Amino acid sequence: MAPRQATRARDSRPRGSLDRRTVAATAIEVIEEHGIDSLTMRALASELDCGTMTLYSHVRNRDDLIVAILERLIEELDVVANTSHPDDGWRDVLTRLFGAYRELGERHPRAFELLALAPYDAEPVASHLEGVLASLVRTGLSPDDARTVLAISDAFATGFLVVRARSTTRPGTATGASTPLGDLRSVGMYDRGIEAVLAGIEGTLTGAATDHRSA
């Protein structure tokens, strides 16, 4: 991506008009248009019409820029809104949350992979997952069962959506194509898969509880 001219000597962006969220949002736009390999600090500064030193006042380096992108993607998931319905059971919580997860992948198929494949123990993903686990425990699951439910369902959702996202962004392919392979990657197939996975987990948990009581 060829950087725009303009930021050689000083910023042309008005002072105070830039913040970390705006930097992250613009970085996502660059990734979606040009790919992750095109996201350099210099290219992003050019896109934002600011100097690189101004950019470094909001993100320390490229690693911190990735963290800012993850923060923005997690913010878009809006976990609180999707997990705070008082009458929801754990299946309702995850059905709604994984629906939002799919929508995020549809909006940002290239940047989505940064969140989908991020290490669980790294921030801001760790805090995000702790919040999801807490919402599952509030529905009545034990902490151990909450971790099991989230691990299994997230593995399905992430695997499906990463494949779908890569198919969407690869030249000459379309997930909506009327082919058997296209149907396997469809939104409807994802929704059916989530339903089946959650039902299977529920059956396993119910069976384990029954075995424990009869032992």
Rank of each mutant, 00 (worst) to 15 (best):
L129Q: 15
T83Q: 05
A100L: 09
D121S: 14
V67F: 10
R107Q: 11
A45D: 02
T83C: 13
A116V: 01
A24E: 07
L205Y: 06
D144T: 15
G200H: 14
A111S: 09
N61W: 06
L114I: 15
E47V: 06
I31E: 00
L77Q: 04
Y101W: 15
S12A: 10
V80S: 04
D64E: 12
G140Q: 10
R107M: 04
E32C: 02
H34E: 11
R42C: 00
D37S: 12
P143M: 02
R147H: 15
V149G: 11
S186C: 15
L129H: 15
L198T: 02
I36Q: 08
Y101A: 11
A68L: 10
L161S: 04
R213T: 12
E103I: 01
A122L: 08
H212N: 03
H85G: 05
A215K: 10
V93F: 10
T52Q: 12
E33R: 13
T206Y: 01
A45E: 02
Y56M: 04
F156V: 13
G140L: 07
C50S: 14
G182N: 13
L141P: 08
A6S: 14
V187C: 09
P14L: 08
V162E: 08
Q5N: 09
V30P: 00
L150D: 04
E195I: 01
G16K: 06
H212G: 00
R15M: 05
H58T: 00
E47Q: 14
E195S: 13
T148S: 07
L48I: 00
R21M: 04
A111I: 00
S84I: 01
T7M: 06
I74L: 12
L55Q: 01
A157F: 11
V67A: 14
A196Y: 03
H108R: 14
L161T: 08
M41H: 04
R164T: 11
L65V: 10
V125P: 11
